[in-house]
Design a protein around this nucleic acid. Structure first.
Lengths: 340, 340
DNA sequence: CTGTTAGCGCTTTCAT
DNA sequence: ATGAAAGCGCTAACAG
């Protein structure tokens, strides 16, 4: 069997009109659900013709004419990140509920691709874009021909809507939980803070809370590149443990990716979470319960974040020009044995 | 700041022509790189005008005219599956290397969406489609207006190209490794086998190898829905352990998702992999080394699978009508402490 | 209620 | 070498 299905060519609106013995206009009206303006018999004939020809309207032509494509795009930093994928699921559902198709653009952490995709999306005339974790400060972001909603990242005064986790609430919840559980020395481990508002907010809130408590040692470690600097990570952990010998110690990781790196480090160092040290992770990776005794996490309402980011975008696409808003959702603490 | 960037409207080819004091034809020629046919001065003027207007050709219009969209789609069963995401990365790279844009369609395991997406893709006139894990037997699959490449799933006589893991090689490698390591009783745990050729091949190869070896107990367990039937899973594991008391036992899991469920089960049952029982997983989840003592895995060349699925598709899109082919790549054993 | 007509932005004969 | 004009498939005035 050969693979030459390209040969089959599709019926057009004219074909339908001809078969139904009418004009393209009426067919178009039928397609757009303007039934009140079509006689029953004509409607019948058109219906028939469409079925017979197996006709489906060409979206490209439609888009060209109407100036809207029913396409929206999600730009994300790293498709490997489960958080992004979960957000994407919510977004996808919202798109389908509203007749939109989602274009997924994976920056793959390559700076150059940010611009590449933005241009591409302009070329394809997408109706709107949702951006997760873009870091460029390029001027291209200033005058985009479509509305934009930002997920999980605040970007300086661009006037875009934002949806994400309520980092203050979440960090407060996590920090207080650890303190209430009797941990006396807490180290907060994060990836690069530069340009990533979310991480900064978590760090700052953590610092603030720790400072308010007497007798609690709070420390923040920022490691630029977790993949490269594994010994640095190990060193920080070791020196933290030495410095705080005798105290109940815990680690907080800023996101799921860092959690993986820290778990690996702890294994290397032969430190057992839940016994030798506490461990609490932002994000709730699927493997959190299977890693050692299980890892306590701060789960984000990712699906909801994805879904409502579409809703915000939708409002903009319909012409809402009001002030940019922020929608922040609370996180949820999932307690496992790493913080016993 | 208001979010009304929609107002900015883009320059068209006519605008460029006007500014460059020429016709649309020449601009079009310029855009399509037909320089041999343009005088140096005209080329110069057009270049200038394009820059000045910040002009970018409208892909929708272009697609409508040319009949090709430079869009290809990936349909996948479950975006949550890391395997799919890894394949996607390879595919994405290939697309970008060749000037195509990737549309990602997530079936989300909802049967109805298979058809929905296929129709959608017809409507948008995509140039080709890569399908991972479709299970429908719907006739719609028969005459699609674009070429199709299947990833990891064989579908009955549809005449589509296939790319994926060499399941026979991989299963042989894994099984022999376990046997050579001294395991005497091996249970192969899989999700639903119906309609999923990949899993069937793994199971069958496993059975065959075990049968060839004297004194090795081999067993296969199929569980339809891992999410629902957790006690069933537990029971199977328990009875396997009882039946094979005194022998060196191991579990093989058919994919990463099953591995997670089995790990959870083992934790529930207080059976420790690497000590009480061996564990080997198809796929290589990121968390494999952090789960208990680490899990031995059979890693697939996912990136390469993704990349070459594009290459096959590309060939078809260029009009290659030769017989459908299969490209199977070998797997690699990653040994960790679960099979000590 | 229905059909004719003029484009959407681009490519492609076909003349010049 | 260059451009005028037709038309991809569809929608939206505008007439009837």
């Amino acid at each position: 069997m050969t693979n030459n299905r390209q040969s089959i060519k599709k019926a057009t609106i004219s074909d339908v009109a001809k078969l139904a013995k009418t004009g393209k206009t009426s067919v178009s009206r039928y397609l757009n659900g303007e039934f009140g303006i079509l006689s029953a018999t004509l409607k019948e004939r058109i219906e028939q013709a469409i079925k017979e020809l197996n006709y489906r309207p060409n979206q490209m032509a439609r888009s060209l004419k109407k100036g809207q494509t029913k396409l929206i795009a999600l730009i994300l930093a790293d498709i490997t990140n489960p958080y992004s994928v979960e957000v994407m699921k919510g977004l996808e559902a919202a798109c389908q509920d509203n007749g939109y198709t989602l274009l997924v653009c994976n920056i793959n952490k390559e700076k150059a691709k940010e611009k590449y995709f933005l241009q591409l999306l302009m070329d394809y005339n997408v109706d709107g874009v949702i951006i997760h974790a873009l870091r460029t400060q390029d001027s291209i972001l200033r005058d985009l021909p479509f509305p934009v909603v930002l997920v999980d990242r605040r970007m300086s005064d661009l006037g875009y809507d934002i949806v994400g986790l309520d980092n203050i609430q979440a960090t407060t919840l996590a920090s207080n939980y650890l303190i209430d559980s009797g941990f006396e020395a807490i180290i907060f481990i994060t990836e690069s803070l530069t340009g990533v508002g979310t991480r900064q907010e978590r760090v700052n809130t953590f610092k603030k809370i720790v400072k308010q408590q007497k007798g609690i040692v709070g420390e923040v470690v920022e490691i630029e590149d977790m993949n490269q600097q594994t010994e640095l990570l190990d060193q920080h952990i070791v020196s933290f443990c030495q410095k705080c010998r005798g105290m109940r110690k815990a680690i907080v990781t800023v996101n799921g990716s860092v959690t993986l790196h820290v778990s690996l480090a702890l294994k290397r160092l032969n430190i057992i979470w839940g016994k030798d040290i506490g461990l609490l992770s932002f994000d709730d990776p699927v493997w959190a319960s299977v890693a050692g005794v299980g890892i306590t996490t701060l789960r984000q309402p990712t699906y909801k974040i994805g879904y409502s980011s579409f809703e915000m975008l939708h409002r903009r696409m319909q012409g809402d020009h009001s002030e940019a808003k922020e929608y922040l959702y609370p996180g949820e603490l999932i307690i496992r044995d790493s913080t016993n």
